[in-house]
C-alpha cells in the first residue's frame, strides 16, 4: 500500500488549525484554503482562521463503523455552524450520543483522526466538544 504521508501532510494545516477561505468578492467563508469561491466563482479568495466556537446545526450517530474505525465504538458526526455562519462537518467528542442536541454550543478540540496502521502515520485534526468554558471564549 502506498504511504499516505504526502496527503496527510497536504491536509495537515487546515485540519490542525481549522483554516478556511473568505471570498473578497462576495464575502462568503468556507472550510479549507481554496483557489475559487464555491459560492460565486471568484478567484479573489484569502485564507483565514475560522472561529473556534459554534453550535450543532445537525447530527447523526454512526453505529456502522468504517473499517479504519473498527472497535472505536459509536460516534457522533455533526454539521457545526461556526460563529461566522460557516458550516463544517466534524465529529463531536466528549459527549455521549444521548446527550447531543441541535443548537448545543461547541468548541474546537484537537484529536487523533486516525492512523495508517500501528506502524504508520497518525492523522491529527479538529473535532468539536461541548462548550464548557463559555466565560473564557
Amino acid at each position: 500500500m502506498m504511504p499516505k504521508s504526502p496527503r496527510i501532510w497536504q491536509l495537515a494545516e487546515r485540519r490542525y488549525r481549522l483554516l478556511g477561505s473568505r471570498c473578497t468578492a462576495c464575502g462568503k467563508t468556507s472550510v479549507g484554503p481554496r483557489n475559487v469561491c464555491p459560492a460565486c466563482g471568484s478567484e479573489d479568495v484569502e485564507t483565514v482562521q475560522l472561529p473556534s466556537t459554534g453550535t450543532v446545526y445537525s447530527y447523526t450517530v454512526v453505529h456502522a463503523l468504517p473499517a479504519e474505525r473498527e472497535r472505536y465504538g459509536p460516534y457522533i458526526m455533526a454539521i457545526v455552524e461556526l460563529e461566522d455562519g460557516t458550516r463544517v462537518t466534524s465529529e463531536i467528542v466528549d459527549c455521549e450520543p444521548e446527550d447531543v442536541k441541535i443548537g448545543m454550543p461547541v468548541e474546537l478540540a484537537f484529536r487523533v483522526i486516525g492512523q495508517e496502521s500501528e506502524e504508520g502515520i497518525i492523522y491529527y485534526g479538529y473535532k468539536f466538544r461541548p462548550l464548557v468554558f463559555r466565560k473564557t471564549n
Partner: peptide, 20 residues
Amino acid sequence: KGRDEDQVTIAVEAARNALR
C-alpha cells in the same frame, strides 16, 4: 485519556491555552 487522545493532543490543547 479519551479513545482519540494521546500525548500530542494534550500538548496541543495545553499550548493553545497558554497562547490564550
